[in-house]
Simulated scan of single mutants.
Amino acid sequence: MVAPFRGQAQEPGKNEALLFAYFKGNGDGLHLAASTDGLNWSPLKNDSLFLKPQVSQDKLLRDPCIIKGPDNLFHMVWTVSWNAKGIGYANSLDLIHWSEQQYIPVMEHEAGARNSWAPEITYDKKQKVYLIYWATTITGLYPETQSKEENSYNHRMYYTTTADFKKFSPTKLLYEPGFNVIDATIVPNQSQYLMFLKDETREPPQKNIRIATSKNLVGPYMAAGPPITGKYWAEGPTALKLGINWIVYFDKYTEGKMGAVTSPDLKKWTDISGKINFPAGVRHGTVFKVTRQELEKLK
């Protein structure tokens, strides 16, 4: 259920600020925007690049996902190409100076894999490893949801784990919801995990954001719930809790702008797309918290 917005967004803590990592165009590189209220976002360094992509044949940086690990490093993964079987990775202490970029061949072992889209990272505190997950179409799998539209893509979510970004566990299936799914992002919530995902079904069109839950980070995840977004096409969800409210940002990619919904209970969702202000040209990205001191160094 999506209701009209009549309230105010919650602000982060006194020593906290919000950052949004994003790309522009077809994948020019890493941009950052900052906010202190979750609604109004300002580009940093005049919207110039914080990292220019160097890995893969296409050298793209799309769909950046950044988290801060227990090692105090910012870890980032991204889409390197429309059709590569791997993803990009780099880390940084300050979001300014970055490690050497790394190509992680997450699907190179799979002959029928067509792509590796929109990777994300979630840290598993129990296992002390990072879960890296992304969407891939493997030719011939899941024919019951196959469509000839949109290049016949038919994605499912896959994952690997790592403790050090040097050694990686064998790739496994993370989520098969019974439909074409991309852009999953997982956030812990008390004793469970919330997977915000895009239902990529083309016939008939869905193109909305839904939620699946699990008691374990690697699943099994329950059936996805009803759409939390409205009657428009949305992708690239990124979520966090501000005060008592959850807020989910997403890319209204057919309209060339960002959207957002908010909820106090993960059940009744309020559309606040008309209340948010992002820099022009922002595409699929991730929101994360930093200290005010960390933000000041980025200006």
Rank of each mutant, 00 (worst) to 15 (best):
E200A: 11
G86A: 13
T139V: 09
A224M: 04
S147G: 00
E120N: 11
K231M: 03
S263M: 10
E200T: 03
T160G: 07
A90F: 15
K297M: 06
Q206M: 14
G29E: 11
Y133R: 10
F20S: 00
E108K: 11
N245Q: 06
S81H: 08
I247H: 00
I104D: 03
L131F: 05
V106Y: 04
D58Y: 05
P264C: 00
L131C: 04
W98V: 09
T171P: 15
S169G: 08
F50D: 15
K252E: 12
N72A: 09
M107P: 00
G27N: 02
P170S: 14
K14A: 13
G25P: 02
H155Q: 04
T160E: 12
G225S: 10
T213D: 03
W233V: 04
I138E: 12
Q190M: 02
K148Q: 05
I66F: 04
D124W: 08
L240M: 09
G259K: 02
N15I: 07
L131M: 09
A9T: 02
R62V: 04
R114D: 01
D265R: 10
L51S: 12
D63K: 06
Q102A: 12
L39Y: 10
K126R: 15
V77P: 07
D63R: 06
G69Q: 05
T262G: 02
K166N: 14
P64T: 11
E150M: 01
R202V: 00
Y142W: 14
P4R: 10
A280K: 11
S48W: 14
I209C: 12
G219Y: 12
S147A: 01
G112I: 06
P226K: 09
P204N: 06
G259Q: 07
A90H: 13
A163F: 07
D47A: 10
N245K: 08
E176K: 15
K207H: 08
V77M: 05
F168E: 05
Q190H: 08
Y89S: 14
K14P: 04
S116Q: 12
Y158E: 03
N154S: 05
H284M: 06
N46A: 10
G285S: 07
P177I: 07
F278V: 03
